[in-house]
């Protein structure tokens, strides 16, 4: 298990959020989630301009094993998507918290972040899962 960066917040369904300097939120799936999924082979991302809603499905990641929905951890408008994943979905396996990000959201309501888990709580959650 790789270390979980301290600036991330998590949803129980294994998505992470990083609030950047401009106030926008970058979203990805956790290293734990990519490990469970196995080698990723396909990613279906939202489009720039799409509205995503916290808790609702907004992307799909498919591994050699199965397809999994990605649930938006926060609500807002998508301002950027990681186009590089189309040809290299394995980037998520290699760097889930860095180059393997999925999309960036302009937050509707920053208070939604308060409902998410901090790194320690998330680490505890996945420990109990195992």
């Amino acid at each position: 298990m790789s270390d979980i960066p301290g600036d991330l917040k998590f949803q129980k369904s294994h998505e992470w959020v990083r609030v950047e300097d401009n106030g926008q939120a970058r979203v990805g799936i956790s290293d734990h989630a990519q490990g469970l999924l196995g080698d990723l082979v396909y990613v279906e991302l939202p489009k720039v301009g799409d509205k995503v809603e916290a808790g609702a499905g907004c992307a799909v990641v498919e591994s050699v094993k199965a397809a999994s929905d990605v649930y938006a951890p926060v609500s807002g408008e998508v301002t950027e998507v990681n186009e590089g994943l189309t040809d290299k979905p394995e980037t998520i396996n290699e760097d889930a918290y860095g180059d393997g990000w999925l999309f960036v959201v302009k937050l509707d309501d920053p208070e939604e972040l308060d409902a998410l888990l901090g790194p320690d709580d998330y680490a505890e959650l996945i420990e109990h899962e195992e």
């Binding site: 080698d39 050699v64 394995e90």
Partner: peptide
């Protein structure tokens, strides 16, 4: 065993 790390 499903895999030993990477199936691919």
């Amino acid at each position: 065993p499903l895999n030993y790390g990477s199936q691919i």
